[in-house]
Design a protein around this nucleic acid. Sequence first.
DNA 1: CAGTTTATCTTAAACGTTAAGATAAATTGT
DNA 2: ACAATTTATCTTAACGTTTAAGATAAACTG
Lengths: 341, 341
Amino acid sequence: MPKVTLKALAKHLGVSVATVSNAFNRPDQLSAELRKHILQESEKLGFSGPNATARSLRTGRSDMIAILLSDTLEYSVSDPVANQLIKGIAEVLQDAGKDMLLLSGAKAVHSTAEALPDGFIIYGSPKNPEQLERVKQSGKPLLCVDCNLSGIGSVNIDNYQYAYDIAEYALKKQPGKVAVLGLRLIDSDRVCRLQQHELYDANEAISRRRLEGYLAAAKQQQRELNAEQIWHIPVNNHHYAQIAAREALTQHPRPTLLLCMSDRIALGAISVARQLGLNIPQDLRIVGFDGIEEAERSYPALTTVAQHSDEKGRIAARMLLAGDTAENVLLPCELRLRDSC
Amino acid sequence: MPKVTLKALAKHLGVSVATVSNAFNRPDQLSAELRKHILQESEKLGFSGPNATARSLRTGRSDMIAILLSDTLEYSVSDPVANQLIKGIAEVLQDAGKDMLLLSGAKAVHSTAEALPDGFIIYGSPKNPEQLERVKQSGKPLLCVDCNLSGIGSVNIDNYQYAYDIAEYALKKQPGKVAVLGLRLIDSDRVCRLQQHELYDANEAISRRRLEGYLAAAKQQQRELNAEQIWHIPVNNHHYAQIAAREALTQHPRPTLLLCMSDRIALGAISVARQLGLNIPQDLRIVGFDGIEEAERSYPALTTVAQHSDEKGRIAARMLLAGDTAENVLLPCELRLRDSC
DNA sequence: CAGTTTATCTTAAACGTTAAGATAAATTGT
DNA sequence: ACAATTTATCTTAACGTTTAAGATAAACTG
């Protein structure tokens, strides 16, 4: 059977294509009567509305907003923080009648998905420079979330400050040896300690800002914190967190405080501590970062910095839709003081 | 500045649009020399390749495949089973040079995202009948995963059989009262027990097949399993699992066996059991379903049915790409007998 | 060297829409 | 009653590509 198009419908109804188009898009351009008739008939013929591709070509819009993830889709999206962010963005976009498109940053995405969206929310430090370049080139509105790119508006939290705050709190509570379980500090697939020369890095990634906060707090409290006590964890999951935590906690002397750059890492560390028979907070204190739901339910409940990723998503989405893409917004967080420290 | 298009490029270079188009798509249609020149010049002008929308309109293809999720994006995708599936699909699609598009089933998706893909993988029981209808109408290749729709090819596991098998195994091991912690058995947002009339349902959802398996095994072993011992859990997460587990495990007499329809539910139940001071497997045995990674690491390690969702994804994607959309494939699973039962 | 093939490029017609301007009919004001 | 306005619909020209078919010139064939 021939495809049902606006043109075919128009012919069948004996009216012009414009009128059919208007029936769908601009009700004020034709009589209510005719419009109803057209809509009915189109339903009958199984016409599911004007072809989206053609419309998009003609109007230059697609009513889609993309989230440019820094990793593979499946990984980015399974992270609880990213998940909350996506949820927040989705809420706002839906209300605005826009679609959300998730773009993987890790793999070479075919151009269709990249070319289509009317705007982009770049989430996390982009790992694919060519892709970023294409997106910048597109001239479409851009916004960063949890990253900072020169010339692009952004929504962030003050990672340095809150890392400083929670580290300061923890250091005051707990004397003894300090270790950091850091997330994606360097470009390596394996858990490892930092080397001296890797201690500082011009990198704008949020994990670097957090590390700087920890280091500043340690310095201010005159507590030792060397590169060899700073672990790099390549992926934010339980598995890698446990590997690092086990390395850190089987040292002699054993650290008495773990500063963890994410709640997932902290939860992994808690489970290792339990396996090692350590009592939290007596033998060991642990703090996290992010404020994911699981952190409230853990035993002991995790002391952490609560950032509101859903709100971050909502704000970013609203800014993008409003064309408000020049500002750099910093959202407040809260220290959640619980039993783990 | 004027937009850079094929036409603009052609004019600038003094060749026809067709030639520029061929430079990108059909290298054999022009001399290598000219092609190189065109590509260089196009790079210089910041032309990022032929406009995807126009190409898609002209060719009728978008090189995108959509996964039609049954829930909201953020929820569907945070589920470990869905996550594995997506990973598998992504692998195959990437190798084939296709893009993956995630479509939310819960909300009204704007037509652009729905109209674009060249094919659909429907994941889970669709909750949005109109959307499903539109997708069917499109005439594009469809495939179901973890669901069954008449006339549409599918990739599934034998939920009935494996539920039967693991229940049979557990029932033989453990005498006493049996309870089922079921996932999405009825249409309710709250944790609750099933009513008598809800025990059987024509619904094709996988959870129903699993329940039938449990019931058949109980019957075969002449063990009691009434509606009042079957819980409905609306969302596959720790939170709801714990609510249901707490209800089930604070009964008198207490059940000694929990048949859980997902590993996440089972893990939630394990944590409740621990809170109640119950010893597993002495006081209580628990089995799960799915075989997620966490289930190996839990304490005690979870006895479950391992389905290979990544492989399921790969197979589904390959079938769809091969145009092999009529078959109904059943993938094998394995019983993983561990300490929890 | 006429006839045929090959390599290279051009022309022009789609693809299915929308938006601006044109036209004709109906309504209004004076 | 007639110009002025409003309302309803139509015509036309894009939007940026791809591709079948045609044109041209160079290279081969016997």
